[in-house]
Amino acid sequence: MSSPFSINGGAAVAMVGKDCVAIACDLRLGLQALTVSNNFPKIFQYGDNVFLGLTGLATDVSTVSDLFRYKVNMYRLREERHIAPKTFANLVSSSLYERRFGPYFVSPVVAGLEPKTGAPFICGFDSIGCIDFAKDFIVSGTASEQLFGMCESLWEPDMVYLDAFFVMRGCLLIMMPEPRCALRDHITGAPQRRRPRCSLRLGRPRLHHREGQGHKAVAEGAAGLEGFRSGGGHRGSEGTNISVMAERAIYGVVTIGHSETPWSRPHQETSHQAQAPWELWQ
């Protein structure tokens, strides 16, 4: 209960598909059972095709993500190139081990595509930088057991990227509460480990990374994924965010699941309250 790793809560998952990777996290920031914010992203981008997921103590999520922003910016200026996922993973490892006797309370996950071959790369770490290389999936955070279960049952080798998208969606939905339950876990008694909202990124190597066609790809991707939209969320920070990374660029943000706060929901009556909260302001 008092472990720094579980004070704020949060989960992240990364998985490999055929020539693609996906990484996802929830967006909740909590204090034990209390939800403080539903817009606290835990995935950070450090290059064309490098993503870092950070779960654990929220303050360290910010500190560590800022630290790597600094380190990767310095790397880019020094070497005049983007950092490769494998190189970045080793940087994460050595940076965390530097704090061996006063660690950051985070469990990082790295996902990306190797720039030279386009091969998918994922790995996880413990808080002092021991790397866990994986060919299939990596989970981390307070819902890691649940994510392990979902991944073990849903993951299969060589998923094309839309399949991977589906599987990731399944993994994320397990973390989300029932649509009609109240908004704060402490009121509903919803299990603490159900994380309301998530964000996901999916990567695939470039097909047409050439002039002009990137935008086309983005448009196609967003349109193709429109079918997965299942909730009423309409803002980037609402519902479950799924950013699809393909063509070594972010395809677009797709929102699935339910919106969380009343003001992101279109005017509607809730079952237990005859008077809609909006009428207060009429």
């Binding site: 070497e79 190189t87 080793n90 940087l91």
Partner: peptide, 15 residues
């Protein structure tokens, strides 16, 4: 090498 687990590119070493 101890940071990135790979050897420096030539220009980095030269610098």
């Amino acid at each position: 090498k101890r940071i990135y687990n790979e050897y420096p590119p030539t220009r980095i070493l030269v610098q």
